[in-house]
Simulated scan of single mutants.
Amino acid sequence: MSPHGFDLDLTRPAMNGVYFVSAGDLDRLARAAAREQLQVCRTDLAGCHGKDELLRRLAASLQLPATFGHNWDALADCLRDLGWMPAWGYVLLFDHADQLLQAAEADYNILLGILDDAATFGGEHDMPWFACLALPDGAFDEHPAA
């Protein structure tokens, strides 16, 4: 976000989605979300090498219910229905997303699909729902904005 001067309005469900940001943006996004009384969940993916570790980390950071099934379908269901964490909107922040991408690209891509689906579902229910994944600053230099 910051390399292109784009500020995300976290209160607008029409902007729901999955965003790639620099690591420095995560704290700013967390503060903005807290100001708007949105639920903020932060997950550090440093050293995360695949699905099992990812699901464990998400279970902890999202405080998933004890009934969480530790599989992709259960994660998708939980992210669509965050009833155990009542809020008018949600912002999920992921540190070191590149490490999961490098270690387990297929799992990373599945996670992106699940996050995108949950953001779409939130938008259909007029609820702010954002996922922001931090990539190294150099990642933005590789793919400059058009």
Rank of each mutant, 00 (worst) to 15 (best):
L82Y: 09
D73T: 13
F94A: 05
N71M: 04
Q63F: 10
L100I: 03
G83P: 06
A87I: 04
F68T: 03
D77K: 05
L58Q: 00
L100V: 04
T67R: 15
W88T: 07
W72H: 02
Q63R: 15
L62K: 02
A97H: 08
G89F: 14
D98M: 14
L101I: 06
L93P: 08
A87D: 03
L58D: 00
S61L: 03
L75C: 03
L62N: 04
A87K: 10
L100G: 02
A97L: 06
L92T: 03
A103L: 09
W84R: 10
L101S: 11
W84L: 05
A87L: 08
L92F: 15
W88L: 07
A103D: 13
H96C: 09
C78F: 12
C78L: 08
H96V: 04
Y90E: 00
C78P: 07
A103W: 14
P65A: 06
W88P: 06
Y90V: 01
G69E: 04
L75I: 01
G83M: 05
L92Y: 14
D81Q: 14
L64T: 02
H70D: 01
W84I: 02
A103I: 07
Q63A: 12
Q99E: 15
H96F: 13
L55T: 08
G69F: 00
R57H: 00
A66P: 14
G83C: 05
E53Y: 06
L75Q: 00
A104P: 12
Y90S: 01
Q102M: 12
D98R: 15
R57V: 00
L79D: 02
C78K: 15
N71C: 08
D73F: 14
L54Y: 13
W84M: 07
G69M: 03
